[in-house]
Design a protein around this nucleic acid. Structure first.
Lengths: 104, 104
DNA sequence: TATTTGCGCAATTAAATGGTTGCGCATATA
DNA sequence: TATATGCGCAACCATTTAATTGCGCAAATA
């Protein structure tokens, strides 16, 4: 659990997506998050680590409790890529036009 | 290479994202795609299989050649999820309002 | 102060992933 | 018809992943 660590890989796991949804509504501690899944606290903590490592979470320490919350800014990367893909897809007709033009 | 097979897992791999970008511009055969990466034809074929399995690609047989092209409709799932996450994030203040209201 | 609780970290394990090689089949080409 | 080419499939391998268990530390509580 070390190597690749980007936003795409982070949201590939369904549990992590669910955690993100939870934490987008309110900051929560690892134990509180784990209660929402049939999954151990440690398993959740590992998911939190993956999400934190790619800056999808912010944390705030409160005594011995750590509240995690969704950090939306890093999700822009995915959004941007989806948009670019859409742009490419829409521009393919122009490309075809270019090709036909050159074939004349 | 069998179990999970959804759009999120498909776009988690950087090579597959690059393939999608390529194929969004024009339909291509596996060999043609492989020429764009330093990666064997078989490796590309496996990526194509993953992408096809979750309906991110369409294919058209032309003799012994198979042209693959991007299928944008399935990407809506990711787009939709991102949008919903955004909505949740924006609604969190209302939730807080609710909580404060009930605390009075 | 003694005990409980919340948490991150390290080690272990089973399964999934990405890649390679070798194969067979169908379609082209000589 | 014989050979070359494009492709998918199966077997295999190294690495990564997700999860568990056990641990130690700091903060809360008795």
């Amino acid at each position: 659990m070390e190597a690749r660590r980007d936003v795409y890989q982070a949201i590939a796991d369904p549990t992590r997506r669910a955690i993100l949804s939870l934490l987008s509504l309110q900051a929560m501690t690892p134990n509180a998050i784990a209660e929402n899944f049939d999954c151990s606290r440690q398993a959740v903590s590992k998911h939190i680590k993956v999400l934190s490592d790619c800056h999808l979470l912010k944390q705030k320490q409160k005594g011995r409790e750590i509240y995690y919350q969704f950090n939306p800014s890093k999700m822009k990367e995915v959004k941007k890529w989806l948009h670019q893909l859409e742009q490419l897809w829409e521009s393919r007709f122009e490309q075809l036009d270019e090709v036909l033009k050159h074939q004349k």
